[in-house]
Amino acid sequence: MTSAGPEGGGREVHDPAEPSFGRWLELLANSDRRLVLSTLLENGDDRLPVGVLTDVIARERPEDVTPQSVLIDLHHVHLPKLQRADVIEYDADESLVTYRGHEDLERCLAAIEDLAAD
């Protein structure tokens, strides 16, 4: 997905020392993080409540996984990891997540989703 800068009216693409391809693969290795990113991309530029992301992931997981355990994993593992990689903005106090826009990451995610669909 190509993102235009602010002048083009699209999502701003960040490039603070763009992580390597291997770093993108590490971030995308986890299915919950892929679901978070896919959901944020589908949502566009809006901030999403962590509860929405929790519900999306809980629907995809086995029945023995509770929304509470998904929320704990998001809060303590996945969202901080994505934030450290400068992929998202995570406001833990407000429980809101915003995707920051990374073209290379989006291409990797699309390729992984295409392979998984086959």
Results as ranks from 00 to 15, higher is better:
Gly22His: 14
Asn30Arg: 12
Ser31Asp: 06
Val36Asp: 08
Tyr90His: 00
Thr66Val: 13
Ala85Asp: 00
Pro62Trp: 09
Asp91Asn: 07
Pro19Leu: 15
Gly10Ser: 07
Ala58Gln: 09
Pro62Met: 11
Val13Asp: 05
Ser69Gly: 02
Arg34Cys: 08
Leu41Gly: 00
Glu94His: 12
Ile88Cys: 06
Gly44Thr: 09
Lys81Ala: 09
Asp104Met: 13
Tyr90Gln: 00
Leu71Lys: 13
Asp64Phe: 12
Ala29Met: 01
Ala110Pro: 02
Ile72Ala: 12
Leu53Glu: 05
Arg100Ser: 06
Thr54Val: 15
Val65Ala: 10
Asp64Leu: 11
Ala4Val: 11
Leu35Ala: 09
Pro16Glu: 14
Asp104Pro: 13
Val77Thr: 15
Ala4Cys: 15
Ala85Tyr: 04
His78Trp: 00
Asp91Thr: 03
Arg107Leu: 14
Asp114Ser: 10
Thr2Pro: 00
Asp86Tyr: 05
Ser20Met: 11
Ile72Glu: 13
Leu48Met: 15
His75Gln: 13
Arg23Pro: 02
Ala116Glu: 15
Asp45His: 01
Trp24Glu: 03
Leu74Ala: 04
Glu103Pro: 03
Gln68Ser: 14
Pro6Tyr: 14
Leu79Asp: 02
Glu89Thr: 10
Gly5Pro: 10
Asp32Ala: 15
Leu28Arg: 04
Ala17Cys: 07
Thr2His: 15
Asp15His: 11
Asp73Cys: 09
Pro62Asn: 12
Leu37Trp: 01
Ala111Met: 08
Leu48Arg: 14
Leu48Ser: 13
Glu7Thr: 01
Glu103Ile: 11
Asp114Gln: 10
Leu82Asp: 08
Asp55Met: 11
Ala85Val: 05
Thr39Leu: 15
Gly44Cys: 13
Arg33Ile: 07
Leu96Cys: 02
Leu35Lys: 13
Arg84His: 12
His75Glu: 11
Leu109Asn: 01
Thr54Gln: 10
His76Phe: 12
Tyr90Val: 02
Leu96Phe: 12
Ser31Ala: 15
Ala111Gln: 10
Ala29Gly: 13
Asp118Phe: 08
Leu35Asp: 05
Ser3Asn: 12
Glu60Val: 01
Glu18Cys: 12
Leu96Pro: 01
Asp32Tyr: 05
Glu103His: 08
Cys108Ile: 00
Gly44Phe: 01
Thr54Arg: 04
Gly8Ser: 12
Glu103Ser: 06
Leu53Gly: 09
Arg34Ser: 14
Gly101Ser: 09
Pro49Met: 09
Gly5Arg: 13
Asp118Gln: 07
Glu89Tyr: 07
His75Trp: 05
Leu28Gly: 05
Val52Gly: 08
Pro19Gly: 08
Leu96Tyr: 07
Gly51Gln: 04
Cys108Trp: 10
Thr39Glu: 12
Pro6Ala: 15
